[in-house]
Every structure is written in structure tokens, then in C-alpha cells.
């Protein structure tokens, strides 16, 4: 079984994100970029399935700027076999990415697509779901356990209040949650080996997908600063304060 793993290049999780002065987005100049942490978990899961002999090939794909090649190289160093880079400099909206992925799935015919449940830049949490819808495949989202058999995959999902296990017919789409695994570090020897692994360079036009944004970002702002709270001694005092501050009438 072939596994397809989409990976996204995002601002590193340890960077303190700043909003651009013109409020058009967040500052990306001279900011450290890394693979989306949920995608690292996806790559790890796919590589483990290959190591267990369940998967035969792990293909990683990224949609983004030319530098997303570095993200693909990291995935290759973790153990993926080859990469596909779809270069586009504009914003990458979930639906456009899902359409591109659907085309790539048609070409590659994977048995499983494993995506991160969301990217930590826009936290959209919808590309996997959109892809499943476009393909008409089953989806197991927020996975904390993934167990494929010959023609199905059992996915344990993290839901409000507990765990839910679903069984999907293959091929299927799985999105990964934090507790699925702990991704490995790409070792120096494997980083060197990854240099020889192939990356195919593509554009959205190659797949006939229009990636023109359908959304307009009006404004990006910092979360409002919280002001210090006060302590009250009695319920009456609480009600009085709430009335005074106009929270209740």
C-alpha cells in the first residue's frame, strides 16, 4: 500500500508570532520556518507503517513556495521515499490544496492519505475533510491510533469526552492528532541519504487547478490584551461590579 502525506511549511512552533504593522497578516520575513508539527506526526506514522511492512512507499507532497522543498527534504530524511513539490507563491487556501491533493491522489493511487488535523499557521482544520469529500472516501479525523488491515483501517479518534473508534474502507483519509506518536529526529546520516531521494517539481497548472484565493483577509490583529481581574468578597458585590461594568443590566 502506498501512503500519501501532505506537509506544510509554517512558522516554527517556537517562534513568537507578530502581526505586520499594516495588519495584512503575520510577519514572515526572517522568521524561522519548519514543518507543521501535525504533519511531522503524519510523516512519522506513515514511516512506521512502512517499517512494519504495512506500507510499501511513502510519498510526501507540499503545496507552497520554492522553500517548501526544505520541508520535503526533512520528511525524506525522516524516512519518506520521494516528494512532490507544487510551487505556488500566493496564499494556500484549504480548498485549493484539497483540489490539488485530489488530483495527485488520482495520479498516485495511494491506499491512505495521512494529513495533520490542521496547520498551526491558520488552524483551518478542513483540508483533510475537504479532500475526503472531493474523493468520496471515508475519513477518520483527529487520530490517536491508526491500524490498517488488508482492506480497512481502524482509527481511534479523540473527541469531546473520550475516544471513538471508526473503521473505514480503504482507500481512506486520516488526519492526525498530537497523541498519535512522537516524531523521530532526522539523523545526520538520513539527512545525507535524503539528498539522493527524488522530488518532482510541479505547478498548480500541471494539475489544472485554479488556486486563486476565494477569501479576502480584511484584517489580522493580536488577541486583545487581558486586563487584570479583581477579587470580590460576596455575591452582592459581584453583581454590583457586573452591573457597574455594564456586563449585566
Amino acid at each position: 500500500m502506498k501512503i500519501l502525506v501532505p506537509v506544510k511549511r509554517v512558522v516554527d512552533a517556537n517562534v513568537k508570532v507578530r502581526v505586520k504593522p499594516d495588519q495584512s497578516g503575520v510577519e514572515l520575513a526572517n522568521v524561522k520556518m519548519s514543518m507543521n508539527p501535525f504533519d511531522e506526526i503524519s510523516v512519522e506514522e506513515a514511516v512506521r507503517l512502512k517499517e512494519k511492512g504495512v506500507a510499501t512507499e511513502v510519498v510526501v507532497v507540499s503545496v507552497g513556495p520554492a522553500q517548501a522543498q526544505e520541508t520535503l527534504r526533512t520528511a525524506l530524511a525522516m524516512g519518506a521515499d520521494r516528494g512532490i513539490l507544487v510551487t505556488t507563491d500566493g496564499p494556500t487556501e484549504s480548498l485549493a490544496v484539497a483540489k490539488l491533493l485530489a488530483k495527485i491522489v488520482a495520479e498516485e493511487a495511494p491506499g491512505l492519505v495521512i494529513l495533520g488535523k490542521q496547520a498551526i499557521d491558520d488552524d483551518a482544520n478542513q483540508t483533510g475533510q475537504m479532500l475526503a469529500a472531493l474523493l468520496g472516501w471515508g475519513q477518520g479525523t483527529f487520530a490517536s491510533k491508526v491500524e490498517p488491515t488488508a482492506d480497512t483501517v481502524s482509527v481511534t479518534r479523540e473527541i469531546d469526552g473520550g475516544l471513538e473508534t471508526v473503521e473505514l474502507k480503504l482507500p481512506a483519509v486520516v488526519t492526525t492528532d498530537l497523541r498519535l506518536n512522537e516524531p523521530r529526529y532526522a539523523s545526520l546520516p538520513n539527512i545525507m541519504k535524503a539528498k539522493a531521494k527524488p522530488i518532482a517539481n510541479k505547478t498548480p497548472a500541471d494539475y489544472g487547478v485554479d488556486v486563486t484565493p476565494r477569501l479576502t483577509t480584511l484584517k489580522v490583529t493580536e488577541p486583545p490584551k487581558r486586563s487584570a481581574g479583581i477579587k470580590v468578597k460576596t455575591v452582592d458585590e459581584l453583581i454590583e461590579k457586573l452591573k457597574n461594568s455594564g456586563v449585566i443590566a
Partner: peptide
């Protein structure tokens, strides 16, 4: 030495 991109990837890891 090692090519810059690979070394940077290693340094990050």
C-alpha cells in the same frame, strides 16, 4: 563540508 541546506536541516533537528 556538507551542503548548506542539509547542514541547516541538521542544525534544526
Amino acid at each position: 563540508g556538507m551542503d548548506e541546506a542539509s547542514f541547516t536541516a541538521f542544525a534544526d533537528q
